[in-house]
Amino acid sequence: MPRPDIATTPLLSVKGLRTWFHTFGGIVKAVDGVSFDVAPGEIMGLVGESGGGKSMIGFSIMGLIDPPGRIEAGSIEFEGRDLATLGEDEMRSIRGKEIAMIFQDPMTALNPLYTIGNQIEETLALHTMLSARERRMKAIEMLHKVGIPQPEQRLHHYPHQFSGGMRQRVVIAIAMIAQPRLLIADEPTTALDVTIQAQLLRLMRQQVVESGTSLVLITHDLAAVSQMADTIVVLYCGRIVERGPAEEIIARPRHPYTRGLIDSIPHESDVDGAKRRLSQIPGNVPDIRRLPPGCAFAPRCPRASELCRTQDPVLSERECVGDGSGPPRLHAIACHHPLTVSP
């Protein structure tokens, strides 16, 4: 179901983003011409396998690309400013306050030498004018919100005194406390168990929906993303292969790669020996420094033709088959031979 509360003016508009790494072995085009919009309050899932460039998009938005990496081209418009052109000082004032980020490993996001109270209050001290007492109150309130029992006492504890799931809750609390407009979560639950993962996804969704924050959820887990996202962007070798409303992408994928990803997940119907073989995508993800000409997926694609091996497919938008209610929603595919779907 399209969420009616999503406005149409985008909060974040990425256009033609290219983030390349100049390594000894060649240029790694980690992100190569990626465009997408994130509306206020929208939850967008960036999905792809390792090497797809999904994390580098997050780092590019945050201005965290270090040499030998560089944003070569494109713009990252956020509330009227192009983040790709901002200096480090300006980015620092945006990071944490307007755009926050959550990483896969909560231990690297927390400083082991400070109590979590210190770390939450530090974010507030940086970005607000609150007094020490107010900051403390706010930190307690936030810890309570992310489901940490006895926040008054836990405030004085160090990161190692928390379990993995609790640590990630603390990280979410720190990310959300300055009420950012955009939250980027890079594989936030990958390191955690399924029961904890479900808790945290619910928590994150509840947090962003309550505060109207937009969320870019970067993950390899198609199932998790399909539970959360309004829009899904599928990446392969640094490019968008398919982009559209979540239900549409999952139910009617039109790019052979997306289709392959979905079919690779073992389904309920496979049990009982009836269908023991999974449908698989043959081959391996190619070396991103030596991409084949034409469509990068062509060597693994069952539908590839001569055209695919010579000419890059362009990401082109078409209207969703949709249910006809609400404004028309767009489904973009970069494929010469997209799968046809019955309405």
Binding site: T23, A30, S50, G51, D287, R289, R290
Partner: peptide, 8 residues
């Protein structure tokens, strides 16, 4: 970075 390639 990207995983090592199958060697040329």
């Amino acid at each position: 970075m990207a995983s090592s390639p199958p060697v040329m």
